[in-house]
């Protein structure tokens, strides 16, 4: 049931350490590190180095990540992490049969900018447009960075944690004006099941775990 096979994980991890040893060691790059969890490797890279690292991951014969599976972002606002956003890339090598997750953390919250990957993998085109639409991440060098999924003229970035679930505006047809008008949403927000945090260790599902409730 594992996605990536354990053997290939160790091989890939040591290859990453060997090829990017300079990047990982440099003291001015506290953002560069390798995380192995649940038999998957996450490679965290400083934003400035992303394009170079990705090109190496695609072209080095030891990696050969020929397919970019997915690009997305995560908003860590509710988890109170800084920096707030992470842009996540999932890579897959059909030649070597391994997977890698690359994460970057655009620092400047006023302009969330990361380099575009369209020149390396054409599949990045729509994925970056979606991440821009949903999170407002700007992909520098993208040939056509438009909104993709939301309505024409939509404002805001719906998957950000400070965007309400029921949205901000709703559209209806105004009989008097004989046109579509935008009004604030009339939906009452409701939450049937609260988000519940138990004490650490509860989610490990061991029989002895204490069950102290911490409700947010």
């Amino acid at each position: 049931m594992s996605v990536s096979l354990p053997g290939s994980v160790f091989k890939l991890e040591s290859a990453l350490k060997a090829v990017f040893s300079r990047l990982l060691e440099e003291s001015q790059n506290p953002r560069a590190r390798i995380v192995v969890a649940a038999q998957e490797i996450s490679f965290e890279v400083p934003t400035g180095e992303l394009y170079r690292v990705m090109r190496q991951l695609r072209d080095e014969p030891i990696f050969l990540f020929d397919s970019l599976v997915d690009i997305t972002a995560v908003d860590y606002l509710d988890m109170k992490k800084t920096p707030r956003f992470a842009v996540v890339y999932h890579l897959l090598s059909l030649t070597c049969n391994h997977r890698l997750r690359v994460r970057v953390f655009p620092e400047d919250e006023s302009s969330l900018t990361v380099p575009s990957m369209v020149a390396l993998w054409p599949s990045a085109n729509w994925m970056e447009r979606e991440a821009f639409d949903m999170f407002g991440i700007i992909f520098e060098g993208h040939p056509d960075l438009r909104r993709l999924l939301t309505d024409y003229g939509f404002q805001g970035h719906p998957l950000r944690k400070d965007f309400p679930l029921s949205g901000e505006k709703e559209k209806r047809y105004d009989e008097e004006k004989r046109a579509w008008v935008e009004v604030p949403v009339t939906v009452e927000p409701r939450e049937n099941v609260r988000r519940v945090f138990h004490s650490p260790g509860f989610a490990d599902h061991t029989p002895q775990s204490p069950s102290v409730l911490v409700v947010k």
């Binding site: 599976v69 988890m79 988000r195 650490p200």
Partner: peptide
């Protein structure tokens, strides 16, 4: 593909559907 980020609670923190 499902990319799932959990914060340890009873609801997913982020789900990306590929």
């Amino acid at each position: 593909g499902v990319y799932l980020v959990s914060d340890g609670s009873n609801k997913p923190y982020r789900v990306k559907l590929r």
